[in-house]
Amino acid sequence: MGYLTTDKKKITTKTILEMKAAGEKIAQMTAYDFTTAGILDRAGIDAILVGDSASNVMAGNADTLPITVDQMIYHARAVARACQHCLVVCDMPFGSYQVSREEGVRNAIRIMKETGVDAVKMEGGASIADTVRAIVQAGVPVVGHLGLTPQSIHKFGGYGLRAKEEAEARQLLADAHALDEAGVFAITLEKVPAKLAAQVTREVKAATIGIGAGPDTDGQVLVYADALGMTQGFKPKFLRHFADVCQCMTDGVQAYVQAVKGADFPNEEESY
């Protein structure tokens, strides 16, 4: 743990930029509920993303598109209540900022007012830079997201590596600069070549948070259910399992079932 993350004060957007400047890596995970967020916060996570991946992880949808602003507010409010130390970022879901700049500003302000999170996250580059700038000018900190952007999955036609060809790599770099100039304090880089992610990290003022983008970004983010071994049948190259919560929970439930069926639970000491 570095000198910044051992500080018990609340992590802010300013802290994230100070961590980049100091060369201290930023550790981020997703969370969608009060209990999980509290565990992550107490464990020393620097930032929590209330991702629109809640659409997949919590609701079982095939992609992130169905989740609504109201649903994101529900999840983000629960997470923010649990966090005393870490920075909390909420995804702006598909359709909440693509229609117009004004609607994007309105939804960003609503999310901040109704949840208590510290920032919002948006997918896209130069095409949304004006909206990002307007949201930042309204007083809402913004995280950008480039590379594999799940809200555009139908345009991409899959979840494969992005920006591996020179033209798309040049566009991603231009998009990163556009977001940087629009005022984002961080940029998520998802499933892009490590060399390109390192170049973006060197060239922008914003902190970069990688997922499948190599070791040279300023930080890393993973979906907690993936990183802790809860998700079954999903093991992309960039994912490492840091625990086997699925097996631990399975063992615990089976032990409970056996105790109930064997009339061992509750015993006399567990009864009133």
Rank of each mutant, 00 (worst) to 15 (best):
residue 5 T to H: 12
residue 9 K to Q: 10
residue 9 K to C: 09
residue 14 K to T: 08
residue 15 T to K: 05
residue 18 E to R: 10
residue 19 M to I: 08
residue 20 K to S: 06
residue 21 A to E: 12
residue 23 G to P: 07
residue 29 M to A: 15
residue 29 M to P: 09
residue 31 A to F: 10
residue 34 F to A: 06
residue 40 L to Q: 13
residue 44 G to Y: 08
residue 48 I to H: 06
residue 53 S to E: 10
residue 59 A to Q: 15
residue 70 D to Y: 01
residue 73 I to K: 02
residue 74 Y to Q: 04
residue 76 A to P: 05
residue 76 A to F: 11
residue 77 R to W: 11
residue 81 R to C: 09
residue 81 R to F: 10
residue 86 C to E: 04
residue 89 V to F: 09
residue 95 G to P: 02
residue 96 S to H: 02
residue 97 Y to G: 07
residue 100 S to F: 00
residue 103 E to I: 10
residue 104 G to S: 04
residue 106 R to V: 07
residue 108 A to H: 02
residue 111 I to E: 05
residue 112 M to I: 15
residue 113 K to Q: 15
residue 117 V to N: 09
residue 117 V to L: 10
residue 124 G to R: 00
residue 126 A to R: 14
residue 127 S to E: 15
residue 132 V to I: 13
residue 132 V to G: 08
residue 135 I to N: 02
residue 135 I to K: 01
residue 137 Q to C: 13
residue 140 V to E: 10
residue 145 H to E: 07
residue 151 Q to H: 10
residue 154 H to F: 07
residue 161 L to G: 06
residue 165 E to N: 11
residue 167 A to M: 05
residue 168 E to G: 01
residue 178 A to F: 08
residue 179 L to H: 05
residue 180 D to M: 06
residue 181 E to C: 11
residue 181 E to H: 14
residue 181 E to S: 13
residue 182 A to C: 11
residue 183 G to F: 04
residue 187 I to Q: 01
residue 190 E to G: 00
residue 193 P to N: 09
residue 197 A to V: 07
residue 197 A to Y: 04
residue 201 T to A: 04
residue 201 T to S: 09
residue 204 V to P: 00
residue 204 V to S: 02
residue 205 K to N: 13
residue 205 K to E: 13
residue 208 T to L: 05
residue 212 G to R: 01
residue 212 G to W: 06
residue 215 P to A: 08
residue 238 F to V: 03
residue 239 L to N: 05
residue 247 Q to M: 13
residue 252 G to K: 10
residue 253 V to L: 14
residue 253 V to F: 14
residue 257 V to G: 06
residue 260 V to H: 11
residue 261 K to I: 00
residue 263 A to I: 10
residue 263 A to M: 14
residue 264 D to E: 15
residue 271 S to D: 09
